[in-house]
Design a binder for these strands. Structure first.
Lengths: 245, 245
DNA sequence: CATCTCGCTTAACCTGGGTGAACGCTAGCA
DNA sequence: TGCTAGCGTTCACCCAGGTTAAGCGAGATG
């Protein structure tokens, strides 16, 4: 593990100087919350659970998924290092999906009423809204992908999305990033079979678009991959992000 | 058109007595906003537009959609009468999808800064958050449907979802509702072709699950349709809704 | 050092749903 | 009262991607 990045909750907020004193107090309390740990490939939250606390994943990869009665499983979102994640669900009565780790993670727990405060704090609330709207846009784009793009486009699009999000989180150097997903994960996220994901990975490799070995993914031709996936990054609304050089 | 329901923004909020005076003032101003009209099958907002106002659809059906460069089109959500709809997008810089009417609609426009106030008003903000989380849950469920359910299940699931939402909005009587979607709409929403939607509609009819003619849809066997679609309504988080008898 | 497991890879075969095209019904509309 | 347009319906054909199964390499475990 690398050194710990600052709490992602903070990274998503405006400059502290724009916050009221009350808001700064909230954040101080959050910064003081103890860091918890969970190993790779475990459930953090299960469908049907009732929650009294909220989670913020500080480090590591996770995913949301739903399982049908007969066992079919669909990953509906990837939660990347630095993403806010389970801040909101406890505002509803009951989990309607599960959340599992991909890698080991570090996270904090916040009591529910603290989140309710954050959500309606002026500057913090607005920032959380903006974050939520981007998450929503990503979810819409998955719908478009699975509904309209063919297998190759879908895989290319998914890799582009993850890459752009990782880059915005400062986790890309020289077009390379750590990439802990398995082909089976990608299959469950894109609605195809692991076998077919493999075929498409081969195809992207043979076209010279990506290098992927072990846990390292490198974009050999990012514009080409974007074209192959009909990927247009505007839905990520990253333009204003200062971390993009 | 039937008589006008109250502004859906109000329907989604807690009892007015729980609101502060400031919040009640906000709502009064909203109630006073003039009602605008737009005909069926028109774009209300287009991908790429920059917005300075927000919209609340008071009456009628609409949908969100995205179009790929080569014309493939995916409907990503249906906005039903009474749903909040475009309250939030203007918090982001630019539309990343389009919004089109299905039927003629009535709507109001709110200036952007008014929405920013609403969103962080204590009681109103919390209610809007809850609404947003349900919308998000629906979007996740679409991902699951398109990713994992087969054509028949997908169609059945979509009909169940729309039916439950319409029922919560008070638009169902005796298991019947007005249903202005075409089979092509359903095709664009479920990621299949109109031809195949038609085959699946025939199948649901021949199993005695639905009656659908003109603009009327009737559930002849709702439990059966739920089973056919592997539909579990918990993700709609309707249990607490007082309008469900 | 042997064994086990997990993830990746390849191959042969099959099917759900796409494609393209034609036809018919109903509802405006001139 | 005939024309046009949109929507639903049906058919014949075909392919993208699913299915099943087997082999392989690398890291984990005893």
């Amino acid at each position: 593990m690398q050194d710990l990045p600052p709490n992602p909750l903070l990274a998503h907020l405006p400059d502290p100087s724009e916050l009221s004193e009350t808001e700064r107090d909230y954040l101080d309390m959050i910064a003081a919350a103890p860091l918890l740990t969970l190993g790779a490939r475990r459930d953090l939250l299960r469908d049907g659970e009732t929650l009294r606390t909220c989670h913020v994943i500080v480090q590591g990869w996770a995913c949301r998924y739903k399982t049908l009665e007969d066992g079919r499983r669909q990953i509906t979102a990837f939660v990347l290092p630095g993403d806010l994640c389970d801040l909101y669900p406890p505002l509803l009565a009951e989990m309607d999906h599960s959340l599992a780790t991909i890698t080991a993670i570090r996270y904090i727990e916040l009591p529910r009423d603290r989140v309710e405060q954050l959500v309606v704090a002026p500057a913090i609330g607005r920032a959380l809204w903006r974050d939520m709207l981007v998450t929503m846009a990503i979810q819409r784009e998955w719908t478009v992908s699975i509904g309209q793009r063919d297998a190759l486009e879908r895989l290319a699009h998914m890799l582009c999305e993850l890459f752009f999000r990782l880059r915005a989180a400062g986790l890309v150097r020289d077009d390379r990033c750590e990439f802990p997903l398995t082909q089976t994960d990608l299959a469950e996220a894109t609605g195809m079979t692991p076998v077919h994901v493999n075929r498409m990975v081969q195809e992207l490799r043979s076209r010279g678009l990506i290098y992927w070995k072990g846990r390292v993914l490198e974009m050999l031709d990012l514009p080409g991959l974007c074209r192959a996936g009909l990927f247009n990054p505007t839905y990520l609304h990253q333009s204003a992000d200062p971390r993009l050089a």
